[in-house]
Amino acid sequence: MDWYKIIKENIILHVLLVSILVLFSFCAGLFIKNWPILMLDKQIKITEVLGLGISVILAILIPVYLESVISRGKKKDETVLREVEKYREDVGVIQSRFLSFYQNGNLTSNNKTELFVLSEVLDSKFHSLDKMIKKRFYNKASESLDALKEKHIELWRVLTAEDILSEGVDNINDDMFEKGIRSYQNVEESIIKIIDFIT
């Protein structure tokens, strides 16, 4: 809608607008002519000047401080998110190795040692991640974190089970493979929930 065009085309609105401007000009003239009616205190108190100065400083500093607090919080969230992604990658590496050992149909002593070491390293990384998330989010993430912990322990138990690591075992049986796949999928789902919580 073009107001200028509407006013220009409508004579009544044009006359009304001119009348309002004349009235406003008349009132402004009376106000300026009778200026001494409005008396201002010509004394300036030091406390008033200090109060005004402090108000201006606070008006500038508070937004700057809040912005820095928010950006620090975002950086902490990004750090936690990176650690969750690293944990996720490590879970993927273990799953890949587990799948490879199953497909080969041959589980050597070195393969068992590799699975055990990777499981222990993953467990250590999980505990660090657990502490980091608890420190950053306090009790807000406890439900998602407890679910991830439960699924992590389930995966760790599968990878370190006697049915895989015992001396007499030379391959991963179908039952253990299915448990491993299910555990991996459960951990993945829990990781996704943690990522959703953080973001």
Rank of each mutant, 00 (worst) to 15 (best):
Y4H: 08
I6M: 06
I11L: 07
I12C: 01
H14M: 08
H14A: 08
V15M: 05
L16H: 01
L17E: 03
I20S: 07
L21T: 11
L21E: 05
L23V: 12
F24T: 15
F24G: 11
F24C: 11
F26T: 11
F26E: 03
G29W: 06
G29E: 02
L30V: 15
F31I: 12
F31M: 13
P36L: 06
M39H: 08
M39T: 15
L40G: 05
K42G: 11
K45S: 11
K45E: 14
I46H: 05
T47H: 08
V49P: 09
V49A: 10
V49W: 11
L50Y: 09
G51C: 02
G51D: 10
P63T: 07
V64S: 04
Y65N: 08
S68F: 08
V69W: 01
G73D: 13
K74C: 00
K74D: 05
K76L: 13
D77I: 07
E78Y: 10
E78S: 10
T79A: 13
T79C: 02
E83H: 12
K86V: 11
K86I: 12
Y87D: 06
Y87L: 08
R88Q: 12
E89I: 04
D90Y: 10
V91P: 01
V93L: 11
I94L: 15
R97V: 13
L99D: 14
S100I: 01
S100Y: 12
Y102S: 08
Q103I: 09
N106T: 14
L107H: 03
T108V: 04
S109Q: 10
N110R: 13
N111S: 15
N111D: 15
N111V: 06
T113H: 11
L115Q: 06
F116M: 08
S119G: 04
S119T: 02
S119I: 00
K125C: 00
H127A: 05
L129M: 12
D130A: 03
K131A: 14
K131L: 14
M132K: 09
K135C: 00
K135H: 06
A141M: 03
S144P: 00
S144N: 15
D146Y: 06
L148P: 04
K149D: 13
E150S: 14
K151A: 15
H152C: 02
W156L: 09
V158K: 04
E162C: 00
E162T: 08
D163F: 01
S166R: 07
E167I: 05
E167Q: 11
E167N: 15
G168A: 03
D170A: 03
N171R: 13
N171Y: 10
N171Q: 10
D175S: 13
I181Q: 11
I181S: 05
Y184T: 15
Y184Q: 09
Q185M: 10
V187D: 01
V187E: 03
I192N: 09
I192Y: 06
I194F: 02
F197R: 02
F197I: 01
I198F: 06
